[in-house]
């Protein structure tokens, strides 16, 4: 009994150390989205220059689709861009874009003209209206939306072949069956 008192602080320390160690392995920037399994928030974005129609929440009904948040100022978006082009070329899924926080209306269209345009629909979001509605914390982010217009998954950071093969592709197949 007497010894227990001396061991107790050590045990308390050990428990705390385990929790802190687990905490260290987690990415503080990867926040769980509260929007998973919720309906796409209402948004209505105007077209970017060079396109004749914008992008709104109603466009996401009827088909399993992807919504990608990007910006010409975003370096990680350039990194994932070739893979987004691949999604379009292989016709894997309809990919829509939200052109986020362009300071200059020309910047987004110029960027797409230079690197290619993988998007079916694009909305211009200079004031973060749709981005905040989607709970976006940084670009790029990619959302998987089911046929009924519900958000089913959110991927933070550049889309890669690995992420696609392991998570997105199986999920799309599953959602298409529903």
């Amino acid at each position: 009994m007497k010894r227990l008192i001396f061991i107790l602080p050590l045990v308390a320390f050990a428990i705390m150390a385990v929790y802190l160690a687990i905490g260290l392995t987690k990415d503080p920037r990867a926040l769980p989205s509260v929007l998973i399994d919720q309906e796409v928030p209402p948004f209505d974005l105007v077209a970017i220059e060079g396109r004749d129609r914008g992008f709104k929440h109603g466009d996401l009904l009827g088909e399993v689709s992807l919504v990608n948040i990007f910006g010409s100022w975003c370096i990680a978006c350039r990194a994932e861009h070739p893979f987004l082009m691949k999604i379009k070329e292989k016709n894997w899924a309809p990919l829509h874009g939200i052109d986020w926080r362009e300071e200059d209306r020309q910047a987004g269209p110029a960027w797409l003209a230079r690197f290619g345009d993988p998007y079916t629909l694009i909305g211009d979001d200079p004031k973060s209206k749709a981005a905040i509605a989607f709970g976006v914390t940084g670009a790029p982010e990619t959302f998987v939306v089911d046929k009924r217009g519900f958000i089913r998954y959110k991927h933070v950071g550049p889309m890669t072949q690995d992420v696609w093969d392991e998570t997105i592709q199986p999920m799309l197949e599953e959602l298409r069956k529903q």
Binding site: L31, P32, S33, V34, I132, A133, G135
Partner: peptide
């Protein structure tokens, strides 16, 4: 509204 977008975080 903000919590509904980003959670309690």
């Amino acid at each position: 509204y903000v919590v509904s977008r980003y959670g309690d975080f």
